[in-house]
Amino acid sequence: MAAPSSPQRLRPVNRTMRLATPRTILALILREMSSTHGKSPGGYLWMVLEPALGIALLSAIFSLGFRSPRLGTNFPIFYATGLLPFMMYTDISNKMSQAVNYSKALLAYPRVTFLDTLLARFILSALTQLLVGALLFTLILSIWDTRTVLLMDRLMLSYAMAMAFGAGVGTLNCFLVTMFPLWQRAWGILTRPLFLISGPIFLFETLPEWAKEILWWNPLMHVTGEMRGAFYLQYEADYVSPAFVFMVSAICGVMGLIFLRQYHRDMLER
C-alpha cells in the first residue's frame, strides 16, 4: 500500500497554483503591448502625441479669443489638467469593456479567467496613462512659466478617482458589451458629449446654478476639479467629493463582477 503524500511534497503544487494568476496577468499584458502598439510604427509615440496635440489645439483655439484661461495664466497647463485625467478614465473604461471579447480564445483555458483579462488591461492602461501624464506635465512645466505649484497628493487622488471610475464603468460595460453587442453603439452615442460636460474646457464655478446641480452628479467633474486643485493653490474646488466618485465606481464594479461571474460561460458561447 502506497504511503500518503507528505506535506512537503504538496507545497510546490500549492505554490504553483498561487503564482498562476500573476503569471497569467503578466503574459496577457505582454500580449496586449505587442498587439496594440508594438506592431505599428510609432505606436507608443502616438500615445504621447495624441494628448499633446489635443492640448496644443485647444490652447491655440482659445488663445485667439481670450487673453488668459479661466484659471491661471497658461493655456497648456489649464487644458492638460482637464484632458489628461479624462483620458485616463476613457482609456481604462474602453480597454476593460473589451477585455472578454479580446481574449475569448484564451478564456477557453482553465488557467485564464475573465478577472485576469480585466486586471491585465487595467494595469497596462493605468501605467501607460500615468507615464503619458508624467511626460506631458514635465514638458509643460519645463517650457512655460505656468505659475503653478504641484501638490502631489491631490494629483494622485485625482488619478486614483479617474482609475477607479474607469475600472468600475469598464467592468460593468465588459458584461453589457459582450452580452448585448448593440450596447457598444448605444454607449458610444450616449457618452459622445461627455468631454464637453466633464470640465476639461471650463470651471464648475462658472456654470449657472441649474447646470451645477446637474453636472455635480457627473463623477468626472470631481476628477477634473481635484486635478485643477493639484496645480492651482488658489483653486479649492469645494464641490469635489472623492467619496461620491469611489462609491459610484464601487457600485458599477461590483455589479459588473457579479454579472460576469454569473454569465461568463454564456458570454464565451456568443
Rank of each mutant, 00 (worst) to 15 (best):
L57R: 06
V13W: 09
V254C: 10
S241E: 06
V48L: 13
N101Q: 13
F246C: 08
R23Q: 15
W187D: 10
I258G: 04
V248C: 14
E213M: 13
L207Y: 06
I55R: 11
N173A: 13
I92H: 00
D153N: 14
W210R: 14
Q8F: 08
G225T: 12
L182G: 13
K39R: 13
V169L: 13
T171P: 02
S198K: 04
S125G: 06
I258S: 07
H264N: 10
A230K: 02
W144T: 03
L84E: 06
R67M: 07
L207R: 06
R18N: 05
H264W: 07
R67Y: 04
R31I: 01
G65Q: 14
G38N: 12
L207D: 02
S125V: 01
A108F: 07
M163S: 13
R111G: 07
I197N: 11
Q98H: 03
L64N: 06
G256T: 00
L71D: 00
S103Q: 12
T138F: 13
M33L: 14
A120T: 00
N14I: 14
R11C: 02
W210S: 14
Y232F: 13
Y44T: 11
T138M: 08
L130Q: 13
P110Y: 15
D116W: 00
A167R: 06
R67L: 10
L53F: 15
R70T: 06
V149M: 06
V13I: 15
T171N: 06
I55D: 04
L141W: 08
I201Y: 04
G65Y: 11
T206V: 12
P193Q: 15
G133Y: 05
V248M: 15
L28C: 02
M87P: 00
S125N: 00
K212N: 03
P85D: 12
S5H: 02
N94T: 05
A243H: 10
N14M: 15
F202P: 07
L257Q: 01
L151N: 12
N218D: 11
S93T: 04
A160F: 07
T90L: 15
I143H: 00
L124A: 02
A186N: 08
R18P: 01
G82F: 03
G65I: 09
F175P: 02
L155R: 03
P76C: 14
M267Q: 14
P76L: 15
V254M: 11
Q8V: 08
I92V: 12
Y89E: 00
F246K: 08
A60H: 14
F75C: 05
